[in-house]
Structures are given as structure tokens and as C-alpha cells.
Amino acid sequence: MNTFYFIAFLSIFFSILVISAKNPVHSILYLVLTFFTFTIQYILLNAQFLAIVNFIVYMGAILVLFLYTLMLMNLNKDSEPFKSNIVKIAAVLGGGCLFVVLFACFRQVGIAEPVVLKDPGLGLVKNLGKVLFNEFLLPFEISSLLLLSAMVGAVLLATKDPKTV
């Protein structure tokens, strides 16, 4: 349990650094560390497959692409878009409203009973596969369709219109 609190503290610490870092590339690197702490949390929960998939997909692929894009964009202080004061005030108001809503929500929340899994080995590949392909087959397949449509959409956006070429 103590490990949990320590790792949770690290997650929050790094995620605050993500939004407070001046340099966008540093932000992404802190985000990598944040995701790494999530991986550790999954391992603590004995969800090995989820941990390693989080590791490969988020740290190994998505954030590499983020970093790639940021490096290409060459964000310097000079080229940083000008933010007017009105935008800043609006952002503070919006954030304050969100805080009030969240605070109101969390006041109502009591401490829940800790969830006890029926099968502690649920996160292992074999069990996870059986659950996904038996009990949750339909949602699983539908989510794959969702990803496919996103891919097709991305390709469509990226390809040039043949008429304009």
C-alpha cells in the first residue's frame, strides 16, 4: 500500500511538471515518466498484460509520435502564439468552475469498500484473452471497428484530393 502512495505521488508530481514545464519537449518527457508510473501501478495490481501494453503503446508509440511532431514544429519563444489577457482570464474562470464542480462531487463521495477481485490472476494474458473473447466479445469487436474507422479517416485526411493535384 505504501508503494502505491509513493508511485501515486510520483504520478501527480510528474503530471504537474507536464503542464508547468516551459519547453514542450520537456513536457512530453515528463509525460513519458507519468505513463511509466502508471505502468508500475498496473504491475502492482498484477495486471501484467495491461502494464506491458501501456508501456508499448503509450510510451513506445504514441509519445514517440508526439515528440516527433513537436520536434518538427520547432516551437521557440519567438514563434509562440501570442495569448491575450482575455484568453487568460477566461481560462482562469473555466478552470475555477471545473474546480468547483469537482469539489462538489468529491464532497459527496464516501470511502468505498476496497474492490476484491474474484480471481487475482485476471490480469494475466490467458485469463484476459478468455474474458475478452467470451464475455465481452461484442464490445471488443465494436471497439476494433471504431479504431478502423479512425484509421480510415486519418488516411482520408492525409491523402490529397485527386482533383486538386
Binding site: 513519458v32 508499448i56 510510451m59 513506445g60 514517440v64
Partner: peptide, 8 residues
């Protein structure tokens, strides 16, 4: 996973 991290 280790391979995909290597690029960093």
C-alpha cells in the same frame, strides 16, 4: 516494449 523504448 524495450525495443520501442530504445528510440528515446
Amino acid at each position: 516494449g524495450v525495443v520501442s523504448l530504445g528510440v528515446y
